[in-house]
Nucleic acid binder design. Structure first.
Lengths: 213, 213
DNA sequence: AGGCCCAGATGACGCCCCGTCACGATTTCA
DNA sequence: TGAAATCGTGACGGGGCGTCATCTGGGCCT
């Protein structure tokens, strides 16, 4: 099938848009990210080496360093990517929330759904017991934390809820969500509703009991 | 000052008890542990190498591997050591506790005191932003978790509190304690009372709101 | 005391991964 | 089309890794 008839004027092949240099650049970057996800999944983060990642892409070892400085930086990039995809979801929950309870329920539910989705891409084939480092505070992840912080502040003030130590409270909420989320992923079948309900109730129950500084 | 007069019969020097072989063995093991603590503190866990650790002890590189298989194993040994020292403290709190509230308050208070104490040995000189991996589930650490679990079960049953998802609940409590504890260490002055009060109230408030399966 | 044995300390060694860099191929631009 | 810029390439020096043949000296026996 020739496509000349369809693109007669500019014989621009469909992959020729932004200049070849630029295109191979994004392709390489993406290839490295994909390879890294797979390698981390198979070998675990600790055991994985830059060589493992680059080998899987077919690129030369030097090429890796044109894009990332180290294994850590690739991991951060993957984490950043996750955070970047999650942020608008969180933002949407924050916008449509009426009060603290609806915000919290929406946010945790969204986070757990997100977790369940991500889950697939990672635990491919990893020997049990292997563990990932907790994501470092990359800019995008920090932004998510800040967003939570801000949403808490906004929505709690709007509720005329008495002041609490927001720093402690946000940290505690994130901790509960993270830990209950992890445990949720270990159970079969995965019960997002149940886990979310648990986390929400625990936080919601704890809030009015907090000390007022 | 001669001590001949004081130990006239058996010229047993005070460090000659269990045979020299055994003594240098425990000394070496301890030296490696001490060096590791210092190196992790100065360089951070990621950057530290087995060579850094062994160099600081003055021993030969091969000797290290007579005691530990890797940097990870030394770290685990240090974590295990901490857990081993904390366990009796936790046990004491569990024993003297009347109800869930007093147990929780005692345990968290003990944990935060412990944290503050440990704090010194670690953050010696480390560049900010560096971070330690969360301790792996070494046997001794697992034992602490199990102890918490068991204490929760015992004390909640004794309270005739309605059943809750203990797995989620214990995980959430540990998460709150860990995270609020970390934040506590970042503030000056360190306010153990305030942090413990916060964590206790949050958990205590959340408990009655939990779903009953 | 003298001698034998073996636990365990030693450090050189080969392996592999690291990050760099000079080179060459390919794209871009004039 | 030729010059310049960009970037992929893989060889290379550096260094940490874990091992192992060798040596040392403590334990133990006569």
């Amino acid at each position: 099938m020739s496509n000349i008839a369809y693109f007669p004027v500019r014989p621009t092949t469909d992959d020729a848009r932004p200049g070849k240099r630029e295109r191979t650049k994004v392709a390489n970057r993406q290839a490295i990210l994909d390879a890294a996800r797979a390698v981390f999944g198979e070998l675990g983060y600790e055991a994985a080496t830059v060589r493992d990642i680059i080998r899987r892409t077919g690129l030369a070892s030097g090429t890796f360093y044109n894009y990332y400085k180290s294994k850590e930086e690739v991991f951060d990039a993957l984490a950043d990517d996750g955070a970047r995809r999650f942020r608008p979801i969180l933002r949407a929950e924050s916008d449509k929330a009426i009060d603290f309870e609806s915000f919290l329920r929406g946010a945790i539910r969204a986070y757990f759904d997100f977790l369940e989705g991500e889950h697939e891409s990672w635990r491919i084939n990893r020997p049990a017991g292997e563990v990932f480092p907790h994501a470092r505070a990359t800019p995008e992840i920090q932004a998510v934390f800040d967003e939570v912080h801000a949403a808490f502040a906004k929505v709690l003030e709007h509720d005329h809820a008495p002041a609490v130590d927001l720093d402690y409270f946000a940290a505690a909420c994130i901790a509960v969500a993270r830990e209950v989320g992890d445990k949720m992923l270990e159970r079969r079948p995965i019960d997002v509703d149940g886990a979310a309900d648990f986390a929400v109730r625990m936080i919601l129950g704890g809030l009015p009991a907090l000390p007022r500084p």
